[in-house]
Amino acid sequence: GCFECRPPRLQNCGNRFEEIARLASETIFTVNEVEALYELFKKLSSSIIDDGLIQKEELHLALFKTPSDENLFLNRVFYLFDEKKNGVIEFDEFVHALSVFHPNAPMEEKIDFAFRLYDLRQTGFIERKEVKAMVIVILMESDITLSDDLLEAIMDRTFADADADKDDRINTEEWKDFVLRNPNLLKNMTLPYLKDLSLATVFPSFTFNTRIED
């Protein structure tokens, strides 16, 4: 951060303040909250390689507590965070994506993010075979064995509820109707923690003093 600025670093700090102010203007976060997110980003982006970028392995380490890059859902989260699609999460991408998870973020943004998460092949539809593949991964992760008949029964019930036009794929309108009727499906799209984000609460040892007013 810029808390211990010495003259040689002032130029960098100026850029940092500009970036933080810009990110605050682009997202739901205040300047202080973006600054707090920067501290979190620094921690995550240095956990394996200290290069100021979050690698997929580093996201895996944060979510699963083990370093690996092989998990379908982690891949999807990483893919959506990585706006530039260059294989790493940069700070501005991190702030943009987390903004969607803020308790006060518009419901539309959460619905859209979840849709893109589950639209594995980016066809504009959540296809039945994609959903089945995701359920199989979840069952394997949880060490649950289900017969294919039971699995198909879950799929039938889900698509009877979600797929209004019965074409074995869920479009954006059907998805919106479905999640509005089943709001618990969006529970993991909200991180209550983001509402209490400030250096004072997250990093109590810091005395925060920024030149930019919120």
Partner: peptide, 26 residues
């Protein structure tokens, strides 16, 4: 809750890979 009674997306949303609150664990 038995997985058999859940809908597919309820099951999927329990994935650890989708639980970003772990990012904030100290």
């Amino acid at each position: 809750v038995s997985p058999v009674t859940m809908n597919a997306f309820e099951l999927i949303s329990t994935s650890q890979g989708l639980n970003l609150s772990s990012l904030f664990e100290k």
